[in-house]
Amino acid sequence: MSSPAGVIHDIGYQRYEGARLGRRDVFLALYTQSLRTVFGLGRNFKAKIFPWFVVGVAAIVGIVVMAIRAQTGEVIMKYAEYPQYLSTLMVLFVAIAGPELVSRDLHSGVLPLYFSRPLRPADYALAKLAALATGVVLVWGGGQILIFIGAAFSVKGFGNVMNELADAGLGIIYTALYAVVFASIAILVASLLKRRAVAAAAIVGTFLVTTPVMGVLFILPSQTARELAQMVNPATLVGGVGDWLFEPTDAQAEVSIGSFGPLYALVTVLLVALCVTLLLRRYRKVSQS
């Protein structure tokens, strides 16, 4: 009778007996890690340079406005104007952060590993989108909070401080609108390209390509064309919604949206819905390939 050819050794491996986390926890973990990626946390020094440069610029602007408001009481920048004036910087921010969030994963081919877990393609896409939008709100909302601090020390009476707080809250909501629109476009464009440099250039180009069209509409003799001109560019589209909700402009002003505020809001909602729909379809297709 022959002896067994092999022997099983107990080397101490044990079955996992802890809590088995589900889809919600995986989504939150991916969102948290993606938010860290937006600011280069946990990455090398080069990955931190640009996002923290943007944080520094946004903070410096907020501190300057805060200091002037606290010392002189002069309002040189309103809360709703803060994201408008820094919208170009916001475009660059999402153009760098968006590819870091999704293009890197496409290039390295790790998506099948993500989708082998209880994480659906839609969860992955929405976690990345939410992380980028949150990063924008944290940077620009932080600047608005600095402005509020200066205002709180320059106004008299608790009621005036509460009024300032309400205005700051509306300003942050306006920033969140910018964040959702810009992040939706950036993540969608980046999800189509594997090379981060190409994706970054494509995102910036998406925001710039309609600028000449807007310029042509502005010089037309039609008042309606001028009032609708800002609708063709994502940045000015959001600015038009802000003008309608927070900073209504004079109908005779050089740049005015007239009575088209609700239309600007509708187009903004449809733009975000289209970007999110295309993003979900993109990752559904990736998961099946």
Rank of each mutant, 00 (worst) to 15 (best):
S2F: 14
A5K: 13
V7H: 13
D10V: 09
G12T: 10
G12Q: 12
Q14I: 13
Y16K: 08
R23S: 14
R23L: 03
R23W: 03
D25W: 11
D25Y: 09
V26T: 07
L30K: 04
Q33N: 12
L35S: 01
R36H: 07
T37G: 04
G42T: 00
K48V: 10
I49D: 01
V54M: 03
V65G: 09
A67G: 12
R69C: 05
R69Y: 11
R69P: 05
A70G: 13
G73P: 13
I76L: 15
M77K: 02
A80R: 06
Y82Q: 08
M90T: 03
L92S: 08
F93M: 09
E100S: 14
R104K: 15
D105W: 15
H107V: 08
G109M: 13
V110R: 10
V110C: 11
P112E: 12
Y114V: 11
R120D: 07
P121T: 06
A127L: 02
A127K: 12
A130S: 13
L132K: 05
A133K: 00
A133T: 01
G135H: 02
V137T: 05
V139A: 05
I149D: 01
A151V: 05
A151Q: 13
F153I: 09
F153H: 10
K156W: 03
F158M: 10
M162L: 14
N163Q: 08
I172S: 03
A176D: 03
A183Q: 06
A183N: 09
V198R: 07
A200S: 15
G205M: 08
T206W: 01
T210E: 00
V213A: 07
V213N: 00
V216R: 10
I219D: 14
L220K: 01
S222K: 05
A225C: 03
A225K: 00
R226M: 00
A229L: 02
A229Q: 02
Q230L: 07
M231Y: 05
N233V: 06
G239T: 03
P248H: 11
T249P: 00
A251Q: 11
V255C: 02
S256L: 04
S256W: 03
G258N: 11
L263F: 10
A265G: 12
V269K: 01
V272M: 06
V276P: 04
T277Y: 12
L279I: 13
L279D: 02
R282N: 14
R284D: 15
